[in-house]
């Protein structure tokens, strides 16, 4: 009888100790808590409005013509800066990225670019690229469109009529110029208001400035978990250029949005990691001419708008 009681007590104790709230702490806890808290003085932006369009699988965002262009799984949406849906048109397949200018909208599908007019009607699909192509970012100037191909680690240069006029991998004879190191399909580029092409070499945590024909002019890089650098194996995953030439960057893993000067120093924090749900995707970014930042939060399926604090 006593033995039975002891056994019962042991079992109950064991079961109780096995409850999730009674389990011992992980002695091998991996933590980045020291990097998730940010000096509030650096946070110079505030989230002003958010808007959502339901349970959509959003893929990319661009700002042009005082409009937001959103691509989601099989749809293109034209949205006002305040979040009012103005138009929606169906896409033939799942898009990966989008850019726009006054001349039209350009959508990157996996291995080809679709050219649409400003109202979202298909103009033409450009010649498909090879099967290993993974288009991750587009940037358009007056007559040139650049496409980042993460699959082949190259930047493609098109005329805006769809003629492929060249490509480059960032490599040169010199061993120092290693080309694009793209460990995962995050490969962003942008052209700033001075017409400078900037490419994010994510594997080097570097911003690289190239001439249009692919000659490296300059670069800066900073791999660090601290706020002044870029964390993880391949960051920043997304970026956009502010009107003054500085960069808005979004990192995956420990998600945070920051602004770096064109020379590389961190200037401000737009959204610290605590603004995001744990370790997740980096928001795609778009910037308005007035400097408002639009972040596509994939987890919450919403567009979050950040403005400089008054």
């Amino acid at each position: 009888m006593v033995l039975a009681a002891v056994i019962v007590v042991l079992i109950v104790t064991d079961v109780m100790n096995s409850r999730p709230d009674k389990r011992p702490d992980n002695p091998y806890e991996y933590t980045v808590d020291q990097f998730t808290s940010v000096d509030t003085a650096l946070v110079k932006y505030t989230e002003t409005i958010d808007f959502t369009f339901g349970d959509l699988d959003l893929r990319g965002i661009a700002f042009a013509n005082n409009r937001l262009y959103l691509v989601e799984d099989n749809y293109l949406m034209v949205v006002s800066p305040e979040g009012e849906k103005l138009a929606k048109s169906e896409l033939p397949e799942s898009p990966g990225c989008v850019t726009a200018s006054s001349d039209g909208i350009y959508i990157g599908f996996r291995n080809y670019i679709g050219q649409y007019d400003p109202d979202g009607r298909l103009v033409k699909n450009w010649e498909p690229l090879n099967d290993t192509t993974v288009l991750t970012s587009l940037a358009v100037t007056d007559s040139t469109l650049f496409a980042a191909d993460a699959g082949n680690r190259r930047v493609l240069r098109y005329k805006t009529n769809g003629i492929l006029s060249g490509s480059f991998t960032g490599k040169r004879d010199s061993a120092d110029l290693h080309g694009f190191i793209i460990p995962s399909p995050y490969f962003d580029l942008a052209v700033n208001s001075d017409g400078e092409l900037w490419v994010v070499n994510t594997g080097k945590h570097a911003f690289e400035n190239y001439t249009f024909d692919g000659q490296l002019r300059g670069f800066w890089e900073n791999a660090a978990m601290t706020i002044d650098g870029f964390s993880g194996c391949c960051n920043p995953a997304h970026m956009a250029v502010l009107p003054d030439g500085s960069f808005v960057t979004a990192e995956k893993g420990m998600v945070r949005i920051k602004i770096h000067k064109a020379s590389g120093e961190v200037l401000a924090v737009v959204a610290p990691p605590e603004e995001f749900k744990g370790e997740t995707y980096a928001p795609d970014l778009a910037v308005s001419p007035s400097g408002d930042i639009y972040a596509l939060d994939y987890e919450r399926k919403m567009i979050r708008v950040f403005q400089l604090k008054k």
Partner: peptide, 8 residues
Amino acid sequence: CGYCDLCG
């Protein structure tokens, strides 16, 4: 694997 230098 990305064979990265900065490996998390």
